[in-house]
Design a protein around this nucleic acid. Sequence first.
DNA 1: TAAGATTTGTTCGTATGTATC
DNA 2: GGATACATACGAACAAATCTT
Lengths: 255, 255
Amino acid sequence: MVDTGAPETGKGRKRSRPIRVAEAIKDWVVEQGLQPGDRLPGETELIARFGMSKGTIREAMRLLQAQGLVETKTGPGGGSFVGEVSTERAHALLANYFYFRDISIADIYQLRVALEPEVAASLAGRLSPERLAELRAIVEGYAAPAAGPEEERRQHVASLRFHARLASFADNALLAFMIGFMSQILTDLTVYKQLYAAPNEALWRTGRRHQLDLLAAIEAGDAEAARAIMRSHMEMAWEMMEDQQAVVMKRFMTH
Amino acid sequence: MVDTGAPETGKGRKRSRPIRVAEAIKDWVVEQGLQPGDRLPGETELIARFGMSKGTIREAMRLLQAQGLVETKTGPGGGSFVGEVSTERAHALLANYFYFRDISIADIYQLRVALEPEVAASLAGRLSPERLAELRAIVEGYAAPAAGPEEERRQHVASLRFHARLASFADNALLAFMIGFMSQILTDLTVYKQLYAAPNEALWRTGRRHQLDLLAAIEAGDAEAARAIMRSHMEMAWEMMEDQQAVVMKRFMTH
DNA sequence: TAAGATTTGTTCGTATGTATC
DNA sequence: GGATACATACGAACAAATCTT
């Protein structure tokens, strides 16, 4: 039916009971085609079905819970339910992968330069007035140059939110996720560090202009212009952090 | 010290004890700067330190285990150890995110077209003879046109492995991960479905030529040529599956 | 090979907490 | 408030895996 990726053959090591139960429940969800919110069997029924103790079943549910696949509620009508992995959790789980792998600012911007122009182009002529207004409202959040470092930081975070929001409007869920993930990393960095060395008003003004021009091009349905503007914007932002080759991700994301 | 992302304030809902323990252990690992392989306190010590029962502690360890952050071993010298999240597990966890979100072949190729040329360019003149030989050996795996559908499938998987392996040589861990993830998705698809409608020998020959030309350009250190070849290659591969707009990911990845 | 030590893995019974009616 | 139906948590015992001698 559906391969579970589990290497049954060869030196397939013995997996603990909670892991086997968790895999069985996953397979069952797939076979039944269950949807987010659908009920899973309760603890007592699972105990009977698998012939295992309550503790083992509970550990299995924890394995699934950590992956965002199930949610549990207490009380009458409670129990376990199929869960849709949230974007935030997916960000956190992926961030853990990079915790022991060094990623530089340059690495992130290499992807942003390649991907964000694609988003801009694919959105040309496809944003509703409401969405355009929402994006312009974000840009208005940094209409004036930053007074101090705190304001500078707040504006930088807002600017990142602009990009993440823009990407969330893309049809391509994979593309949207990746850009949202990178925005999240840069936001976390910004909150805990002084990311930009020297606030440069000229560059700031250029960046803001880029974003407004970008929205205009998108509204006009000019895909190539939107792509070009976004590329310039990204390359400029990249240069602004030329000296920031320090690695990032020195923390675990919490769920 | 390090923010855990845990919303203590406001409507911060009551989190269960295993979750709180898991978060505390995560924070502790970060604070102590522990590395993969480092020992974590044993069950009995954690029971004492947190003043909680064995079952609760064990559920906490399962939460961490599912995220790939810890591994446990039985016996003398056993216990819990800090784990480095494997690429395979990260692939699986991310695949879960997209299980209920529709991704099309076109979505994947939109990213591949944007990203893989970057990989090719960044690798120009930077691959050792050994690595070039390894990649050429993969290409040799489909030197002759496929006889039947099975062989066709095997060759397609090998071709995807070529791209994943190439990306793994990139300095950019984020870029390498994304390309590896997409290759994994396409490989899984290929194994269970007939991905390509009609095997076309002319296209097959062009694709193989692309890959060999690409390796030559990389060996010669010609970044722009490598980028251009890869872009053509990706665009061609994309067109080969024009009709394949069906969604994918209809299964949970099992760890 | 075998026995013993160490550490996680699993079970069972019981009690508590929580949300709904 | 009380009854009900769930998950949550505890404690003691036993089983299994694995390293050392």
